[in-house]
Amino acid sequence: MATKTTVPFNGTAEQEKRLHEVIDAHRSDPGALMPVLQQAQEIYGYLPIEVQKIISNEMEIPLEKIYGVVTFYAQFSLYPKGKYNISVCLGTACYVKGSGDIYDKLQEILGIGDGECTADGRFSLEACRCIGACGLAPVLTVNEDVYGRLTTDKVKEILDKYE
């Protein structure tokens, strides 16, 4: 079950204006919710409750229906990307080398689940499939930095570099 994000919403008036333009452009189309959500995510980077409520009010679609669609499709995110986005490879090679444990350890330390972001906006966490560095398995990336041959006791050390 997903949890409510605690990252404060920092949408700008400019973003909201663009969202209204998108909604206006699709208002009369049948099945307009998907393209509106896709473009809303492009504008904000994610789809928090504040954005979904605007869409709900404007398009007269119940908030729950929108939330149902957002949580159904993997392409939509309820959480922003953190300043540092951690991506753990759960591809076959990394997984058999124990990346699942690394991933669990990160969730434990950061207190967030898959696709979520810490309340201070510093770290976000996601799983990925094979980044082509199987020789270094298990692998994770923090933004552009790559860390390989990991063990669970190295996780804290890596995070400390980004405090």
Binding site: M1, K4, I49, Q52, L63, E64, G68
Partner: peptide, 26 residues
Amino acid sequence: CEKWQGVGVIGANERGFKTFIGSAFE
């Protein structure tokens, strides 16, 4: 809830094995 009552405060969230009926943002 949605069709007869026009309220729509419950729906299916998530997908596959994780699917559950609930309201927006839990």
